[in-house]
Structures are given as structure tokens and as C-alpha cells.
Design a protein around this nucleic acid. Structure first.
Lengths: 215, 215
DNA sequence: CCGAATCCGCAGTGATACTG
DNA sequence: CAGTATCACTGCGGATTCGG
């Protein structure tokens, strides 16, 4: 990308990750390493040449790593480098701000991917309310399945079943909720199926209630 | 801008402020309202049509306001709306990350503007160390003049002379320090002229020492 | 099937000239 | 001062094709 000619952190950031689709690729990689075709299906609409160009640029800039996957899947896997992972606070801050600018419901054709959902969980997590909390949830909404594990007030969220048995499984009804906001509303109204320690639903709502774009 | 087709805060953020030059325009407006020509001179290299296009888009999206300036200067002034101001935490987070990716010294042709310098001050400010601090500084480096006022641990930083008399005036020598990093190094080594409460130099260094891209 | 490379039409950008 | 106008160029979107 062409340079902005300013010795400034923001300018450098935009030079490195400001091109079209780059941040969304990084959002997906921030959740877990992914193959080229995983990224393609998780970013409907991205041209294949743009994806491969971005991956090459991000790799060259030390933000993303190209790895040869080990035995079970064998193939190419893209993953964040430490420099890439250190970008996550900025991605979450941008995501929080963007969330305040979202319409109440998805526009025509707008989808929610498991990775977007996971990053939303991380973004809205109320760190300051979580001190001392230990609990784990598994969430089901449509065919999206994500987990959230809070250990000593620190969050680990990802796609799929969590690392251990969840304390509470929350299944949202109806199963095609359009947005995170609607989903939290359903939780508040009890429109959910619960399996496990049902009293942890309130804790979930408290910890993941979106409170605006504060720093 | 074309949409990404995802109902996701990050995607919406990039749709709204992800286009080329947009974040740098917002960085300047986050410091203070500016006229069209101020923005042009503060963003050397931006094409005039791109600036006017961005301003129109940002205005349409409710992030920037076009105001008719009052009596003294009379003319058009662009300013942040509340939605625009709420983007600042994200700009600072990106700037902090980008700062970790900067070379030690500016590349050929890279400049430092007063607005970039001000945003750097805001970005590196160590909030957690500032509890209870009340102090004000005025900084001179070359022809850049900025102020930093800490009131009860909260920072106000801007271009020009501060709102009141500064407790300490710091003038950096040599007067064309290439980077914020070099400037803090000069401060640590005593390569500065001080006027006022000299003991506040240590406080300044402590509060504005860059400690990496932590959230 | 995965992981791209290639080609084309078009929109966004950069540079400069010009105007109310 | 505050923008438009113009035009060459690059990058993106969309589709197809190709090699392992």
C-alpha cells in the first residue's frame, strides 16, 4: 500500500492493515488459525485474488504466518503472529464502536458468522464486572456454536465446543436470531433453553451486556 | 463504500471509516475542529477531491459536522459529532498498535504534525499511573507546540498553548527531534530546557512513557 | 477438493488544473 | 478559501481457469 508520509502510529497501522478486507481477515484469524478456504467461506464476497494478496502482504509484514498444518488435516494454515495478536485490542475497540453504529437488525443479505459472533462476545465482555468470576457457557443459535470460559475474571471465547464441559448450555429460540442484540434480549426474556447451572444465565447477561463504546 | 455483507461491528466500522485517509482526517478532527485548508496542510499528500469526498461521506454518516464558523474567522469548519468523538478510543488503540510497528526513526519524507503528536500523547498516556495527579505541561519541539493538562488523573491534550499557565514548560533540544521515542529519550537524558516546576519532568516521563500496545 | 493465478470491466485514488 | 473538474492509473469485484 502507498504510504501516508506521516511518522504516526495510526498512519502506520492503516498502511499495514487498512486495506479492504484486511481487518476482517484478521478478525477471523484472531479467533483461530484458518485455511484459505475457511477464510473464503467465512468472508462471503471477498474475491479470491484479494484474499491471497492480503495474506501475502500480511505475511510479509509479520502480522500473519503461513504454516503447514500437522498430520490430521495436512495443508496450509494461516495464523496470527504475536504482532498480529497484539492488534486484537484495537480490533475490539473498533468493533465496539461499529456496534454502536449498527442498525437494530441486519440489512438485507447481511450475515453473522461464528467468528464475528465470537469477536462480539470478546468485545462486549465487561471486564470490570468479572473480577473473581469463574464460569463457562456454551451458546447455540441456529447452526452457530460458540463457547465462553471465564477463569478468574478473564475471558476465553471461541468457536465450537469449549475446552471443557460448560457449566451452562444456552440454546436460543427461535434458532435464527438476527443479531447479538436480539439474542441478549431473548436471554433477558427467558426465551432460551437451559441445560446446567441455570442461575448462571444472569451472570452471563451481566457480563456480556453491551454498555456502549467506552474505552 | 461497498458493504461487506456482515452484521458485525468491525465490518460496519470499516464501512464507515475504513476508506483511505478517513482515519487520519478523523485523527486531526479529534484534536480540534479544522477548516478544509487546515486539513489539507495537516495531511500532506491527500488529493483535494479525496478530502472533500471523505468529508461529505463522514458528514452523511453522522461522524463529522460541517459548521459555519462564528465571527472571528468566518468560514466553514469541520468538527466531530458525538458519534465521531466516541471513535477516539478505537483510534488511540490503533495508534498504539501502529506505534509498536514504527521504525525507530521516520522514513524518508515522513513528517510529524502537531495533531499526530497530540494523539500520540493521548495514546501513550498511562491512565493507571495518573490517579490523583494534577499538573500541566507545555511542550516545544521545533515549531510544534502542544499542551498536556492532567486534572485529577484525567488527560486533556491539544495543540498550541494550553488553557492556563503550564506548571512546566519543556523545550526539547535539538529542536528537530525525529520521533516521539527520541523525544522521550532526550527527556530522560536531560537534553531539555525547563521553565517552571522542574520536578514535574519525572512525572511527565512516568505518565507518558510508552509501555506497548496493551489494551 | 484445496490454494491459488489470470483476465477483464469498473470504481476508487492520485495528481494537477481550475473556479466561485 | 473551499472546494470542482479532469484524467491517468491502480486496485477491487466477479468470474474463470489451473496446478497439486
Amino acid at each position: 500500500m502507498k504510504h501516508f508520509g506521516q511518522y504516526c502510529g495510526l498512519a502506520r497501522a492503516m498502511e499495514l492493515v487498512g486495506e479492504r478486507w484486511a481487518m476482517l481477515i484478521l478478525r477471523d484469524l484472531a479467533v483461530h488459525p484458518r485455511r484459505y478456504s475457511d477464510l473464503l467461506t467465512g468472508l462471503p464476497g471477498i474475491p479470491t485474488n484479494v484474499l491471497s494478496t492480503r495474506l501475502k502482504e500480511l505475511e510479509q509484514n509479520g502480522i500473519v504466518e503461513r504454516q503447514i498444518a500437522p498430520a490430521p488435516q495436512r495443508g496450509v494454515v494461516y495464523a496470527m503472529t504475536p504482532a498480529g495478536h497484539s492488534l486484537e485490542p484495537a480490533l475490539l475497540a473498533l468493533g465496539r464502536w461499529g456496534a454502536t453504529q449498527l442498525d437494530d437488525d441486519p440489512r438485507d443479505g447481511e450475515i453473522v458468522t461464528p467468528e464475528a459472533f465470537t469477536m462480539t462476545l470478546r468485545a462486549v465482555f465487561n471486564d470490570d464486572l468479572a473480577a473473581g468470576v469463574d464460569a463457562s457457557w456454551q451458546l447455540h443459535s441456529g447452526d452457530i456454536e460458540v463457547y465462553a470460559v471465564v477463569t478468574d475474571g478473564k475471558l476465553d471465547a471461541g468457536v465450537g465446543p469449549g475446552p471443557g464441559d460448560p457449566d451452562l448450555v444456552i440454546t436460543f429460540r427461535p434458532d435464527n436470531l438476527p443479531s447479538f442484540r436480539a439474542l441478549m434480549q431473548a436471554a433477558r426474556c427467558g426465551l432460551v433453553d437451559l441445560t446446567g447451572r441455570r442461575e448462571l444465565l444472569d451472570t452471563f447477561i451481566r457480563l456480556f451486556e453491551f454498555r456502549g463504546a467506552s474505552a
